[in-house]
């Protein structure tokens, strides 16, 4: 018990003295997660809209598949990205293995299903009459689509925040393709995993607290958005 208490005190000290290593790890985590969420949003919101606004054969099946991948294990994505970008892999020539960049790519793949799926769900939640209303007011197909996405903006924003949460909290992928290299690809989750196994509870706790704090901020933002809706 005393060990935990001491650990907590030291952890808080690490945070409030802005320990360079802790800050570097936290900052990298946030940077990687924000980058992957932004890139995934730029791809998935339009793709989700395309799926929603077009009727084609197999649409339901496609949506089911996307939804199945919501909970794809991070290590599976890690394995896939590893095979793709390792030296012998088809994209091995890019030589980006064990860099933050490949971590971003991995996270983009990881959160794409959630972002696409929840975009579709958000758009489906928009009253159908709104589409008729927009068209009857003289909106072109494109203008109608933009208006509908605007209507679903809170749902889409919630999807983005949820995706960010999944990106920043995953560990399997970051360890497998990032390699947990100190000062380079070490992020909050991989550092906690390593330090705990090394017995450095204080550092783990400090990083854990930061991670929970980020989760709290994200959750708070999401609640605010849902309240506005």
């Amino acid at each position: 018990m005393e060990e935990i208490w001491n650990g907590l005190v030291r952890a808080l000290r690490l945070i409030f003295t802005f320990d360079p290593e802790v800050m570097q790890i936290a900052w990298l985590s946030i940077r990687v997660a924000i980058s992957s969420t932004l890139i995934a949003s730029l791809i998935c919101v339009p793709v989700g809209s395309l799926i929603h606004f077009n009727n084609f054969r197999g649409k339901r099946i496609l949506i089911s598949i996307i939804q199945t991948f919501y909970s794809v294990p991070t290590v599976t994505v890690g394995l896939f990205v590893f095979i793709l970008f390792s030296n012998k892999g088809p994209l091995g020539g890019l030589d980006i293995m064990f860099t933050p960049m490949v971590m971003v790519i991995g996270q983009v793949i990881l959160i794409s299903p959630i972002l696409t799926g929840l975009t579709i769900t958000g758009l489906s939640g928009v009253d159908k009459t709104i589409i008729d209303t927009a068209r009857s007011m003289g909106a072109s197909n494109w203008q109608t689509a933009v208006a509908i996405i605007k209507e679903a903006r809170f749902a889409v924003m919630a999807a983005v925040i949820l995706a960010f949460g999944r990106a920043i909290s995953e560990v399997g992928l970051a360890i497998m393709v990032g390699g947990n290299i100190r000062g380079f690809t070490r992020v909050l989750t991989t550092a906690i995993s390593l330090e705990t196994s090394k017995g450095d509870i204080e550092l783990s706790l400090a990083l854990g607290i930061i991670l929970i704090f980020i989760a709290l901020v994200v959750n708070f933002a999401m609640n605010r958005i849902q309240q506005r809706q």
């Binding site: 008729d132 209303t133 068209r135 009857s136 007011m137 208006a147 209507e151």
Partner: peptide, 15 residues
Amino acid sequence: RRRMAFVLQKPVVFN
């Protein structure tokens, strides 16, 4: 269509 206007039965407004 842009020369017409249609008020639908169920009043829906944009958010």
